[in-house]
Write a protein that binds this DNA or RNA. Sequence first.
DNA 1: TTGTAGGCGTTATCAC
DNA 2: GTGATAACGCCTACAA
Lengths: 334, 334
Amino acid sequence: MKVTIKDVAEEAKVATSTVSRVLSNSPRISDETKKIVHEAIKKLNYKPNAIARSLANNKTRILGVVLPSEAQDLLTNPFFINAMKGMSMYAQSKNYYITYAFSNDQENEEEHIKEITHNNLVDGVVLLRAREYDESIRYLKEIKFPFVVIGRPENTDGVLWVDNDNFQAMYNVVNRLIKKGHEKIGMVGAIKDWSMSKDRLKGYKMALEINGIKYDEKLTRCQDEFTEENGYEASKELIKDNKITAVVTTDDLLAIGAIKAINEENMKNIAVVGFNNSQLGQYQSPTLTTVDINAEKLGYHATRLLIDNLEDDDSDNNRHYIVDTVFVERESFV
Amino acid sequence: MKVTIKDVAEEAKVATSTVSRVLSNSPRISDETKKIVHEAIKKLNYKPNAIARSLANNKTRILGVVLPSEAQDLLTNPFFINAMKGMSMYAQSKNYYITYAFSNDQENEEEHIKEITHNNLVDGVVLLRAREYDESIRYLKEIKFPFVVIGRPENTDGVLWVDNDNFQAMYNVVNRLIKKGHEKIGMVGAIKDWSMSKDRLKGYKMALEINGIKYDEKLTRCQDEFTEENGYEASKELIKDNKITAVVTTDDLLAIGAIKAINEENMKNIAVVGFNNSQLGQYQSPTLTTVDINAEKLGYHATRLLIDNLEDDDSDNNRHYIVDTVFVERESFV
DNA sequence: TTGTAGGCGTTATCAC
DNA sequence: GTGATAACGCCTACAA
């Protein structure tokens, strides 16, 4: 049979409240009884019932992670699984549990959020993206439910978030390219509404400006999706019509498409840079230069922010965190 | 403030027990009160407190998934994320939640299992692999805690499991190769203790036997890890020393190594087949022929078995499930 | 320093 | 059919 706090109390010949106090390491308790209780706990192999505990103090120590409906690229993009791992790591270290839900569509996602925030199952929510206008964020704010966003939200007022410095990451990429002698640098992105897309475009422009190169709108393309085909088509045009010598992209799949276009046109000395450091990049020819966004760290710090905020409410100074990116140079950086 | 069953009862001017009955769709309750209660629920936007509910009926509707410590290849191998997705799908359809834990090492994993099985947080556990001698399985059996294994365990007595028919999958691969005229077929696997490895080897042998080809031990290699390097080295030897015309492997990474070796030796007409249908395969030259193990289905049916067993204990006839594999033919099938 | 008792929000077992 | 009321296992005033 299940062993409860009562059994421990009997075994140790004390009251249940005493056992409870020992469990929570209450200061005012004699070392003597502490020892006795610990022995009883060990002897009976007692573990507090997490559910009863949750009910009593209205905290579950469970976090709810919502994977976005857009995540069809769950498989291609190492981002998700890495972020999940990072989240798990910090959560485990703080004795929190995580429940993940894959949502089929946006409606499903919002329904799910409403459910877990209302049925008291989770203490906080982690959102894995930032849409431009985000209904889930709006909702969570409205009901004042603790949450953190991976990806900078449109309006950061009173919201916890972690992200890369996408502006800087792209700025650095373009800067490196220019230092290497490139001047006609194309850019291929996707989904322009995302703050990530906007920031990277800004970084691109700024790097050009700082280096005295005039920004030419014709050298940039923004596609609908992060796919190889999109990268291929956009790059093909840029190569043929604009004689670029380098192309920066906002995702490895786009970059892989670019490589394909370049190989077809036999323009070996066009440089290509991707983002996300997905495994595929290593198997291209030339191998793909990319920017690692450190997804595991993003996840780790997201839960860190959330949990720390859950545990003490005066940590208002710790509301966001920027994760560094790493430039991974490979053959395509010519 | 949180709205509870009490508030609903007051609003509807009935007892809490009545509300509870409406919630659980109890038969003996008048349509009249049913309606009134539903209206009150809607008006107050009431959602039952999952925790209190769990405490009352000693069921949490939470499943614990333990990702193996061996899963360094979490990223390369689409298996995990796909399996997770499948598990989520069925669980959600049955209103179950899933908590995932990434374990750092085996000890950590067992500790984690002990915790969640003792603290009443989860109703059942999903194990994502089958080691030869599996301490976690032994433990779960011992304490009679409900669980399911993805991958056939050594001893299937009284355990729920799902798996592919690894014997058949490999049998079919080799058979196809033979039909195409191959006779000297090498095999490269890894970790021979796994039931998966054993079964595929058996399938390989059987296909040869059925087709009247003598099994030659020298044509098989079993490495320590599923890596490209291992595939490369083993294949290199097989090509040079044994003049094989085809090589079957038990993982795409091994197969990718094989392709590399083949390309180096310039033996374009050696066929290569992998397993797992990882994205990388599509980017090889030649593109890799592989066997898709349907990881999403594996996950889906794992939770199905577990949940169905949790809900009614007389479903003893439904203790395992075999997921079909799909042969994905690409250029390397020559 | 320790024990008693009430409460957390449900469900289940009685009655009526 | 419906309403009290006692669990479920833990925590936390309040007492002692």
